[in-house]
Amino acid sequence: MIRTLTGKGIWDRRKTLMWWGIGMTLYVILNVAFFPSLKEESFSELFESVPEAMLAAFGIQDIAALSTGVGYVNSQLYDGFGTILVAAWAIAIGATTLSSEEDSKTMDMLLSLPVSRTRVVLEKWLAMVVLMVGISAVIFLVLVVSNPIWELDLTLEGMVWVNLGLALLSILFGTVAMAVSAVSGRRGLAIGASGGLLALLFLLYGLGSVVDSLESIRGTSPFYWYLDSVPLAGTVSALGFLGMAFVTLLFLAIAVLGFNRRDVGV
């Protein structure tokens, strides 16, 4: 039974959530299952010939750290493509949740109901939040189960923090996408702008650790706020996490204002 716009937003994507859940489960397992065998070898030898900047771009800051569960999981999932994948899904939802209804003209029907545009934005945003928390929770559970099997030596605290951060970071990018789409009404622009921003800020964080000229602005990347303190080790940056939440709310406000101001469905 669909009673609210948030409920509908989740219901509409229930199958997508299932597939993302399955996909991320496999992605996590495929990565962590290699850990015990890789741990035996020397990572230093394995990556000897790879330039430092290249490694940094892929989220590997310190080769020696790869032989620990925290370092390995961090580089393979959170400091790498796992986070990018989840954030990309958030962007896909944020960019389309308003604009696809406008493109398909169902927005006229929705707005003919006695619901304010503010509520439309907030409820649709909340659905995205729930989905991001959902997928982060799936990854958390897979890690909790994998932890003893593949001897990752992760702490429960670390796993909670890093996945909370994952949800926060992806919600941030989803909200940016939603703001662009709410202001412009253009899905393509929303995906392009926020996707580009995601790539840019990820590289800034990664390369900033090795490229001197980027070092000073590295701290502007939300990836830095999320990951630099290594939340998987249980050392969370409260300021960083609050920063992500703050920027998210800022863009949410832009989304609300933007969607209230303009003509819809033209």
Binding site: S104, T106, D108, S112, L113, P114, V115
Partner: peptide
């Protein structure tokens, strides 16, 4: 919002949630 609560509307370009 009050107007819409007291109005029944049928758009010319009618589109309802397909699923």
């Amino acid at each position: 919002r009050e107007i819409r609560s007291r109005t029944g509307f049928m758009p010319g370009d009618l589109a309802l949630y397909p699923r």
